[in-house]
Design a protein around this nucleic acid. Structure first.
Lengths: 154, 154
DNA sequence: CGAGAGTAATTGCAGACGCAGGTACTTGCA
DNA sequence: TGCAAGTACCTGCGTCTGCAATTACTCTCG
C-alpha cells in the first residue's frame, strides 16, 4: 500500500479506494434517510438532469451506459424504481423495441429531498478521505471538477 | 448528464463513472486471462506490496479496510483465494482472535503474470475514458498520481 | 412479401456483497 | 478468580449484479 508499484496501478488504486469509501458512506446515508441506493439516486439524478434540457427521457441502453451498469441490472433497477412509483416506462413510438424511462413527480420530489443528504454525505466522505495522504491529491482533483468553468462555453 | 448540477455531485458523478468504466474493462480482462476479479487482484497486490517492505501479512480487518470491503466479504474473498492456493491464513500468536493473511508463492506468481494484463487494460480504459469531455480532467489527475515523486531511494 | 441479420429489452442462473447474529478471544474491574 | 464489555472473525439470509439465452422488433436484400 505504501508503495506497491510506481506505475499506473498507483493512480487506479487510489481512485478505487476513494470511490469505495465515498460510495459506502453515501450508500449508508441515502439508505437510512430515504431507502435509496447510490445507484438508484444516480438514475434519478441523471434522468432529472435530462429532464431539464430535453425531453426528459432515456432509452434503457443509454441509461445503462450513463450509470455504467449491465443491461440486465438496468432493467431490474428501473423495474424496482417503477414499482415504487418513482419512474415511468413507456414504449418508443417510432421503434417499438425501444423503451423510454422518465422520472415521475414523486421521483422528482424524492430526489430533491435526497439531494441534500447525498451532498452532505459526499462532503463528509471527501473530508475523511482527504486525511489519507495517498487520497488527498485525488480528492483535490474531484473538488476542482465541481465548478471547472462556469463560463458557458456553448 | 451534460449538465446535472453544478455542485459536488458533478465531481462525484465523474469519479463514479470513471471508476465503473475502468473496473468493468479490467474485470473482463483479468477474468478472461487468469480467472481473477479486480478485487482478488487487488488483494494479491496489496498483500504482496506489504510483503516487500514488512512482514508481508495483514489482519483481516486491515485487509478489508485496504480494499474497502465489509468484513464478511473479506472473509469469503480470502477463503476463495485460499482454496485456490494463492493465500495462506494463520493465527496471530499474541492475539488468538487475529488472523493473518499472506500471499503464497503461487499467488505471487499469478500476480506477476496478471500484472501486465491489469496494466494494459488500465491503459486502454483510461485512454477510452479520456475521450469523454467530463472524464478527461479526472483521467489526467489519475495519471499525475502515478509517479508523484520519482525521487530514487537513497 | 419473406428470410436472415442485427438491435433492444427481459429473464434464468450462479456468484458476490452487506447486514445482522453468533462464536472465540482479550481486557477491565472487583 | 470471575464476570461484563469489547474486539476479531465467521455464517445465515436476502439482495443485487453480470453473463448467457430468449423474446420482440426493425432493417436489408432478393
Amino acid at each position: 500500500m505504501t508503495r506497491p508499484q510506481p506505475g499506473l496501478a498507483q493512480g487506479w488504486c487510489a481512485l478505487s479506494a476513494l470511490h469505495g469509501r465515498i460510495e459506502s458512506h453515501v450508500e449508508r446515508a441515502l439508505q437510512a434517510a430515504h431507502e435509496l441506493s447510490v445507484r438508484e439516486f444516480s438514475v434519478l439524478d441523471v434522468l432529472s438532469a435530462q429532464h431539464d434540457g430535453e425531453g426528459g427521457h432515456f432509452r434503457m441502453h443509454e441509461l445503462s451506459d450513463a450509470v455504467v451498469l449491465s443491461q440486465s441490472a438496468t432493467t431490474r433497477l428501473v423495474t424496482r424504481l417503477e414499482e415504487r412509483g418513482l419512474l415511468t416506462r413507456y414504449l418508443c413510438a417510432t421503434d417499438r423495441r425501444g423503451i423510454y424511462t422518465d422520472v415521475t413527480p414523486a421521483g422528482l420530489a424524492l430526489l430533491e429531498r435526497a439531494r441534500p443528504v447525498n451532498d452532505a454525505a459526499l462532503r463528509e466522505a471527501l473530508a475523511a478521505a482527504e486525511q489519507r495522504a495517498e487520497l488527498a491529491p485525488l480528492v483535490a482533483a474531484v473538488r476542482d471538477l465541481e465548478v471547472p468553468a462556469p463560463a458557458p462555453t456553448g
